[in-house]
Structure formats: C-alpha cells, structure tokens
Design a protein around this nucleic acid. Structure first.
Lengths: 140, 140
DNA sequence: CTAGCTGCAAAGTGTTTGCGGCTTA
DNA sequence: TAAGCCGCAAACACTTTGCAGCTAG
C-alpha cells in the first residue's frame, strides 16, 4: 500500500534493536537509551525514539499498547498478555486466565475495523510489595 | 488504611463529575474541560486534572487503563472492555469475545498482588474508516 | 471559622522535529 | 555518490504543582 524506503542497518539501529530484544522487562525509551549508551556513548535520545518508532512500524519489535505514562516496547511481536506494576510501572509478560487472545482480537464490533487486542493485568510487583508500596495511593 | 479528608462537593467538582458521567465516549481531560467551561467559564485546566484524579481515587469515576497518549476517564466504575481507534484515539465500550474479565482479574501471577485487568481492542472507528484513514500509518 | 478548594502561571515529563553534517549500501 | 541517518537543541503536548485568595459545611 505505501512505499517503504530501504532500511539501513546502522550501528545505532542495531544496538537499539538488540537492547529491546535482550531486555527481560519491556523497556521504555530511556531504559533503551541508557542501555545503548553503554556501547555507543554519543547516541542521542532523539535517535532512540526515532528508531523505536521505525522498528515498530516495520514489525521488528512491537509497541506495547497498555496503560502507564511512558510508552514501552517489546522484542516479541506475537500478541500476548502483560502485567503492569501500579507503583513502579514495570511491565512483563503474564499468563492470564479466562482470555482467548485469538478470539478477542477477532471480535466483531459494529462499524469498526478491528486489528488486535491488548490485555493487561494490573497489580503490584514483588519488589514493590516487599517495599510496602502496595497499600499506598494508586498511580498509573 | 489511610485517612481520607472530607470531600467537598463544590460547583466545579460536581460539574466535572457530571461531564464524565454524561459523556457517551470516554473523555480526556481537555474534553471534560471544554464541556465544563460551558457552565463555568472560569474553571482552570488544573482544577479539572486535580478533580479527575481525586474522583478516580475515591472510586466515583474510573481512569481508563489502556494505551494512547492521553489519559481518559470513564463514568462507569464496573470493569468492562474498550475499543480504541488507532487513528483518532476515541475510546468506547465494547463487547469482546473470548474474555472472562472476572477470571482474568483474578489471575494468579507469581509474586504479584493482582488488583484488576484491562482489555482493549484496537482498530479503526466508523468515522475514520469512512474518511479513509484506516490504511495510513499506525499511531497510538 | 477553617479545612479544603480554586484560578493562575510556572515548572515538569515524555516525545517529536528541523537542521547541517556524517555514513551505509 | 546519494538516500538515509545521526547528534543536537529547540519545540511540543500533556500533566503537575506552588501560592494566595475564596467557599462549603
């Protein structure tokens, strides 16, 4: 449908892609930035944002479509469910009961063209529970 | 667990609560701001943000925990599923197949304290489909 | 009367973009 | 070589916050 110009695999782009793929949690732009800086100290945050967006558009990584204040990315492009900690914001994969993502993503909604489905469980992660943050005000 | 000071039902707060409850779609802070200004031209955006947050904290409305760049609120406090238009960002309620929210919100995830679950279907709304925006680049 | 709220304006956070020079294919 | 990228810094969009005066209970 639309022309895609050729993707050049620059050092920066490769490092960014690796950083997202290697992350055990689903990183925000600055987490990626911090990691990439280890190898390439002069990268700019702008480059990180541009590339995360570009890589997601090409389907090499995916943008996580869930709540929270910062955007997060995921090296896994197959749809799956996430848990998000309401205190610290960390996101990781989760097994969620009672959900058939296949079916959900194929829901017919009158008038809409449906392209996918995101499921997110909210809660408090082990680290925050231990630190006693679970009882405090809900943030997002 | 924590002291809640008394909630004063000011004109502004009431108008904001009404605006969220009356909205057919799930409004962002500035949509609420625009609506409330009709009745109270001197309200400030800060007041709207403060109250949306406070009302959500008290459970009078709920904060929608899904993707997109702006935060959205919902007059309905019972958990249910949403559709979000990837072009214009509008969010509304949806019936989603293959999802048991009760079960999902009760998932046991090792180490986590789970408090809820959000399900969001992504797609293109009727208006945007008609306008031909459905094929264009994915935004969030 | 006074704890709690408001309007205003300034400050924060996270993300995007214009530009001139550099690099990958 | 040239289309595509990069680093930088300035601009943006959305949200939060400090303050001094106002108001519901």
């Amino acid at each position: 449908m639309s022309e895609q110009s050729t993707l050049r695999m620059t050092r920066q782009r490769r490092a960014i892609l690796e950083a997202v793929r290697a992350a055990r949690v689903h990183p925000t732009a600055d987490e990626v930035y911090a990691k990439v800086r280890g190898a390439l100290p002069r990268v700019s945050l702008g480059t990180v944002y541009r590339n995360l967006e570009e890589l997601a558009r090409r389907g090499l990584i995916s943008k996580i479509e869930v709540g929270g204040t910062q955007r997060r990315y995921d090296g896994e492009t197959v749809e799956h469910c996430h848990v998000r900690c309401l205190t610290c914001g960390h996101v990781e994969d989760a097994e969620v009961d009672g959900v058939d993502l296949q079916k959900a993503g194929a829901s017919r909604i009158p008038g809409y063209v449906v392209v996918g489905c995101a499921v997110e469980v909210m809660g408090y992660c082990p680290r925050c529970v231990m630190a006693g943050h679970a009882e405090s005000a809900r943030r997002s």
